[in-house]
Design a protein around this nucleic acid. Structure first.
Lengths: 346, 346
DNA sequence: TTGAAAGCGATACCAG
DNA sequence: CTGGTATCGCTTTCAA
């Protein structure tokens, strides 16, 4: 049909239009600065040859990239999907494209990704969690790439974070179970060694138990990857304990659902026999039976705030201010006061 | 207010090392072709100044971008997340980065996205569904960007697709319900007008009914956005029908879960009172109670194949061959033969 | 309002 | 093995 080999570019268009490349560029970028007649002639040709300017070249010469990088541990968990969508739509409105990359809970992969993002000269990076080698932060700073930590509050002042407080949120959930009378409280959470969110939630759980003088029982804790089946198996084990817990705190809703399903299988009633509190407040737990109590995480809000902060930081040279976004413990039908009828289960 | 700092680049490094820019470039890209002494001197400086070469410039001058675009309707549904992850890890191994974009079931957004992808001169595009304006396909062809349709078999030969057969898969599920004796079969699916996958599954359902001389009853069909709550409400309505269905085919597992939860709420037993078949075979439906029967969709395989095809197409100039990947109807505990005990439900 | 030309930062070809 | 340099496609002064 049209040009088989050489692709159209400003030069070829300029020649056809009998103007200079500068004029073509202006007709595209600042149409007002070009005489109407010239402009229309050019735009007609753009249309005719289906010219789509090379964005790389444009960015390259204007010294901008219009790219922001987002590193998440996974997108399979829909809470990250929601977070990601919020960021994306916010950026879309402002201009930049989002490079979403999946680090798969691996520090090594993350290191490579950060390097790649720097190579592509992104104008900002959104990180998940704060725990990573200091050299990575230094590298970002060295290249003057604004970044922000999400999903965890950074303990260092120099590292800006926009997040809710994992420790406080997990503590609130644990406190609630204790207030309901529970003393044997199981915990199912992510693998703390590779996940600082899980690690903080675990710590919160421990410190609340300690505060209430409840002895920490290792056999009531299970760290699992975020697969529902793994969580279901963990719950099955915990509930098979000679002295089973009367409440389960699951530091993630997928795990909470796994626990719920496992209990149903074992004919353990929720909440009569065991209370369950999840974390994330996914839509699905609101619809489940019973509807699960859960810590509502402001994923969307956090994404919006992080995107906005990055956009602002890129525009002006202003540093990013840390923010803490509140969570909310939402009580539903999966939690109940401890019944003091010992040994009457089933 | 520009020129805050001079950033390191091959030129400045070359000067410091007392070599030419060409040698610096070679030391980085083809270390073997540089004398060990020179190479080490250069690499030491690279280390010292934390030099990360500008990938855009590199791509630009080498006429490659190392970018592949993926357009999905949403990533909130974890079946797309799995698909996305498969593509990403496949590409990661081969080199290119993946630009994931969310079209949010909007043709307009998709149009903009495709344009942006062309602007960034991606080396390939993976599309979801085939139904879109022909001009978009033409544009991609015009720019010689290899593309492949996934999640739907393209009816046009000129548009390569790597997918399973929505029609066949949905037909198989419907057939199975009929074989189990069901004649009143409800359907909950996506919004056909904006979703060709939903549209094909709906058609398949209709044609199987017709084949078996079962009159199509509009009141048994509900098209819904993919939110679990919407599906639960739809199921509640369908099951409140004066002559309620004895089976539900849900063209999506999230909707199937919504239906299951709704039935539980209404004290309608699954599968005794109503059979449910889902679509996607998400891990969660295997763990649910009862475990849901579902059409297993080869999301991972499809992603791998699409990524491989694009990589091959980018390397050689060979066109992409369409592929059809089989699905499998997996029967679990949510389906049962129709009981001919009329009116005895509950 | 328009044009000429200098980059942007790396690559790759061709000489030496 | 190394250096000089044209080149990629566009933006952006600076003059005219």
């Amino acid at each position: 049909m049209k040009k088989p080999e050489k692709s159209v570019n400003v030069r070829s268009l300029a020649k056809k239009a009998g103007v200079s490349v500068a004029t073509v560029s202006r007709a595209l970028r600042q149409p007002d600065t070009v005489a109407p007649h010239t402009r229309e002639k050019i735009l007609r040709l753009v249309e005719k040859y289906r010219f789509v300017p090379d964005g790389r070249a444009a960015n390259f010469s204007s010294q901008r990239t219009g790219l922001v990088g987002l590193i998440v541990p996974t997108i399979s968990n829909s809470i990250y999907a929601e977070f990601t969508e919020a960021i994306q739509s916010r950026l879309q409105a402002a201009g930049p494209s989002l490079l979403i990359v999946n680090a798969n809970y691996s520090a090594e992969i993350e290191r490579d990704i950060i390097r790649k993002l720097i190579e592509s000269r992104v104008e900002g990076v959104i990180l998940t969690g704060y725990r990573r080698d200091a050299s990575l932060y230094q590298l970002l700073e060295h290249y003057r790439i604004p970044f922000v930590v999400t999903w965890a509050i950074s303990p260092k002042r120099s590292i800006p974070s926009i997040s809710f407080d994992n420790h406080a949120a997990a503590a609130e959930a644990t406190e609630m179970l204790i207030k309901l009378g529970h003393r044997r409280i199981g915990l199912i959470c992510g693998v703390a060694a590779i996940n600082d969110r899980a690690s903080m939630r675990l710590e919160a759980y421990q410190s609340v138990l300690e505060k209430h003088r409840i002895t920490f029982d290792e056999t009531l804790v299970s760290q699992q990857p975020f697969e529902i089946e793994a969580a279901a198996e963990a719950a099955t084990r915990l509930m098979s304990n000679p002295k089973p817990p009367t409440a389960l705190f699951c530091a993630n809703d997928i795990q909470a659902l796994g626990a719920l399903f496992a209990c149903q299988r074992m004919k353990i009633r929720v909440p009569e026999d065991v209370s369950i509190i999840g974390f994330d407040d996914l839509p699905i737990v609101r619809t489940a039976n019973p509807a699960l109590s859960s810590v509502h995480v402001p994923a969307r809000q956090m994404g919006n705030a992080a995107a906005d902060a990055l956009i602002a930081a890129a525009r002006q040279q202003t540093p990013i201010k840390s923010q803490i976004i509140p969570t909310e413990l939402i009580m539903r039908a999966s939690t109940a006061p401890l019944k003091h009828s010992k040994g009457t289960r089933r």
